[in-house]
Nucleic acid binder design. Structure first.
Length: 568
RNA sequence: CGGGGCGUAGCGCAGCCUGGUAGCGCACGCGCUUUGGGAGCGCGAGGCCGUCAGUUCGAAUCUGACCGCCCCGACCA
């Protein structure tokens, strides 16, 4: 490929609205261009990388027996109504000219189940692994960080179809193997972490996470063992608090004290000896408010509480709190709640035992020594936020919490979709059974962006060899070098390398800078030393190290370097 | 959806407060020079100043509405 004929609009300055490093560099280096909020075109450089990622994924899903197919983006709305997903706010909905309702799909469980309903008749037809690499549409409330969170993106999604839970486990395990190979081959740093199965149920899920400051997820990692979990799931041992039991319940006046910090200061005690009450209003038909209680120095985790309640929720307003408890916010507690004031009390398991200072449900008063069981009843659940620096429940090591980009996920769906769509088969006893499904996603653009985030330096992108848009970038300097560059390009192409020759009539400095910005791993400079010493120069983008070699030696040497860089 | 910010040439920005013929850097075209780390000189092209409506003799500039984009939060099955 010749730079003079290649669309590669590099910029000296990044657009002002690009925040994430990957966003800035991908635009600056000419890989992508923004069309609208969360909408991007991939220019030739970007698309080359994307296709390399896709190809790795394709090879590895094929290796575990996946069958590639292609399903439409536009679906009849009726299918989504059947599975109850039509109400998802992120689902794009539209009508055609005669008023038929359609959706732009965000995943393909419905279609897969539909095909299964038609094609799978017997246990003899199972198992199956079907996948495609297709555009997905999501009406994101807030697209951000360049290509990391977009409204339209390409996703590999595969689906396993099995006769029972054991079969699903096997299909899941195959995907664990495939995903491990995919991310290792991509060259990015990643973790496999425990993840929430979400409101849709399901029996198990993991996410594949690439550490990056631009990541939207938070993952707890143990330095002593391989425990890794999304904070939505993470459990940790908090710092110990000596909350004595057996003391009588005692009311204390706490005038003007409405925060935990003020309460602890007023009483001269550790915040960990208090209990924090949070009142929320679930968004379901049942009505009423829920009182959630965590230790005073802990944070409530919204998603954990959502799971505990079984519905999303919002904070109660001060008026709602006064109406239910007859006391101001800041003096609310689980002891002595007026009859019918709440539909449920949920306390975090860290304060299941011990006596704590709680709100007295009387403005400007608290209670000392409140104990679960003796003084009040509640359901116990894990609803607190695990914190950086807390100890691992498995090994006692130290947990740290890092931002990460979700690059893939694997999910045991069970029979939810197959049952809704009538994907049934006959087992060996002739009984009708629903197909057991799993779904497995990967976002190639996120792998691409993660690589930029993880390896870029102050000169630009540094691609892992496996993802680079070109393997080799040749900079010929001087007229004599042009012919040599042509010969070298042919020779390198002949050994299977992707080669860019920067034949632009620009100063060497500009071309070196562009080569570094674009991030191709190997750069060859053809200059004066060819005439004087018969050699050209090779420079490694990642390390900056250089060496010289002869034209004749270049093809075999570079081929070996590329192979070595992609070995794993 | 709540809060904040920004829309002027391909990119980065100034001009707006205080209304009067739209500018700078980079990039781009032509010529000459230059050729191992973002070259020099000269000439040149490129803008419905987001849109619409007001105010005014006159609007990039003042007012209003709308649209778009970014950030924080909410949301993200």
């Amino acid at each position: 490929m010749r730079a003079t004929r290649f669309l590669m609009p590099t910029l000296r300055d990044a657009p002002a609205d690009a925040q994430a490093l990957s966003h800035q560099l991908l635009v600056r280096a000419g890989f992508v261009r923004q069309i609208g909020a969360g909408l991007y075109s991939y220019l030739p450089l970007g698309w080359r990388v994307h296709r390399r990622v896709e190809q790795i994924i394709r090879e590895e899903i094929d290796r575990i027996g996946g069958q590639e197919m292609l399903m439409p983006v536009l679906h009849p709305a009726e299918l989504w109504k059947r599975t109850g997903r039509y109400a998802i706010p992120e689902l794009f909905k539209l009508t055609d000219r005669v008023g038929r309702e359609l959706v732009l799909s965000m995943t393909h469980e419905e279609i897969i189940a539909l095909h299964a309903a038609e094609a799978i008749r017997s246990y003899r037809d199972l198992p199956q692994i079907w996948y495609h690499i297709q555009i997905k549409e999501r009406d994101e409330p807030r697209p951000q960080a360049g290509v990391l969170r977009t409204r339209e993106f390409i996703m590999k999604d595969s689906y396993t179809l099995d006769r029972d839970a054991a079969g699903l486990d096997a299909g899941y395990a195959l995907h664990e193997q495939a995903y491990d190979r995919i991310f290792r081959r991509s060259g990015i740093r990643f973790y496999k972490v425990e993840s929430d199965v979400g409101m849709m149920g399901g029996s198990g899920a993991h996410e594949y996470m690439a550490p990056s400051p631009a990541g939207e997820d938070r993952v707890a990692l143990c330095d002593g063992c391989d425990y890794a979990a999304n904070v939505e799931m993470a459990v940790a041992v908090p710092r110990a608090a000596e909350a004595p039991t057996g003391a009588p319940l005692e009311e204390v006046a706490t005038p003007g004290v409405t925060t935990i910090a003020a309460l602890a200061a007023f009483l001269g005690i550790d915040e960990a000896l208090t209990a924090k009450s949070v009142i929320v209003v679930p968004a379901d038909e049942q009505g009423g408010v829920v009182l959630a209680v965590v230790r005073g120095d802990h944070r409530l985790h919204d998603l954990k509480l959502t799971k505990a309640i079984g519905a999303p929720h919002r904070p109660a307003t001060p008026e709602e709190i006064r109406a239910a408890f007859g006391a101001d916010p800041g003096s609310i507690g689980a002891v002595g709640i007026p009859d019918g004031a709440v539909r449920e009390v949920i306390v975090d398991r860290e304060i299941e035992r011990g006596g704590y200072v709680v709100g007295a449900n009387r403005t400007d008063h608290h209670l000392r020594g409140a104990e679960l069981g003796r003084d009040y009843a509640a359901r116990v659940a894990d609803i607190r936020h695990a914190e950086d620096g807390e100890r691992c429940v498995h090994c006692g090591g130290t947990l740290r919490i890092e931002p990460m980009i979700e690059v893939g996920n694997i999910f045991k769906l069970g029979v939810r979709y197959s049952a809704a769509m009538g994907a049934l088969f006959l087992d060996e006893e002739g009984r009708e059974q629903p197909v057991w499904m799993g779904s497995y996603g990967i976002g190639p653009a996120r792998i691409l962006a993660s690589a930029v985030e993880q390896f870029a330096d102050d000169r630009g992108i540094v691609w892992p060899q496996a993802l680079a848009p070109f393997d080799v970038w040749i900079v010929p300097i001087g007229d004599d070098a042009r012919a040599a560059a042509d010969d070298l390009e042919r020779a390198l192409t002949a050994v299977g390398l992707d080669v860019m020759v920067d034949d632009r009539d620009l100063s060497p400095g500009v071309r070196f800078a562009d080569a570094e910005l674009v991030g191709v791993p190997l750069r060859l400079t053809i200059g004066k030393k060819l005439a004087t010493d018969g050699v050209i120069e090779l420079k490694h983008r990642a390390t900056g190290e250089g060496e010289t070699l002869t034209l004749a030696a270049a093809p075999a040497h570079l081929r070996a370097l590329v192979d070595q860089a992609m070995a794993w």
